[in-house]
């Protein structure tokens, strides 16, 4: 049992309730991929590559009027404390599904009928909140691939740890905490494209956590824009 000690409402890692872990985003880091991005959020290290729009060879899954987005979320065997067996498991399959659904609303898919856009998310090191980090990096990689987009999807989690509603749960807060609420939004409209929750929250706490997550998303969105500007100039 790990006890989270809070002094002056600070969290175990010294952050305020509404403070993100240190964040770094870089666009265009891979040579072969059409678009790519690298993101570090605290101890999370995430690499995303985008291929496409390209021909979709599974004919029966083609859409005659639009492209589809396929996502593959994968954790490296060395990304966690005890080695993870390579290959997909139930968790990564679910995350892949909700990630592609979270990204879809932002891309003008109708411009690319019968094709596919493949998003490969590799978690090189995990420290709580990898799905959000993956989505945030994926939309930077989609933009880096030059795809026409309505907005940059951004994702961030809030939750409840040690009786307090907090932003961007760390690994310990995620494991020991009371609730976890990952959210993805389109920042220009504030529309929510991903929402999951597990744990216990009162409706009041839920509203507070949701507002906090959206506030976090908006902060991260600034970093996404900076990463793209840095790559392509103002």
């Amino acid at each position: 049992m790990i006890i989270i000690i809070i002094n002056n409402n600070k969290r175990a890692d010294g952050r305020d309730f509404n403070e993100l872990r240190p964040l770094k985003i870089e666009a265009g880091v891979l040579e072969r991929a059409d678009g790519s991005a690298y993101l570090e959020l605290g101890g999370n290290k995430v690499l995303v590559a985008v291929y496409g729009p390209r021909e979709f060879y599974i004919r029966r899954m083609q859409r005659p009027d639009r492209a589809i987005i396929r996502c593959r979320y994968n954790m490296a065997p060395f990304s966690v404390e005890d080695r993870k067996r390579p290959g997909p498991d139930r968790r990564s399959v679910e995350i892949s599904k909700i990630t592609s659904e979270a990204l879809k609303p932002a891309v003008f898919l109708e411009k690319f009928p019968r094709s596919t856009i493949d998003v490969f998310i590799e978690i090189l090191q995990a420290e709580g909140g990898t799905r959000c980090a993956g989505i945030t990096a994926a939309s930077v990689a989609l933009a880096d691939a030059g795809l026409p987009m309505k907005d940059l999807i951004v994702s961030c989690a809030a939750g409840k740890a040690n009786g307090q509603v907090v932003l961007d749960l760390s690994e310990i807060e995620d494991k020991e905490g009371e609730a976890d609420l990952p959210v993805a939004i389109m920042p220009r409209t504030g529309e929510i494209t991903l929402l999951q929750m597990d744990g216990h929250l009162t409706p009041e706490e839920f509203e507070k956590a949701l507002d906090l997550a959206i506030e976090g998303c908006n902060k991260i969105n600034q970093k996404q824009k900076e990463a793209i500007k840095k790559r392509y100039g103002e």
Binding site: R32, Y51, N74, P86, D118, E122
Partner: peptide, 11 residues
Amino acid sequence: TNSELLPMASP
């Protein structure tokens, strides 16, 4: 020894 040729690495 185990290797993964990740789909991100090449089309």
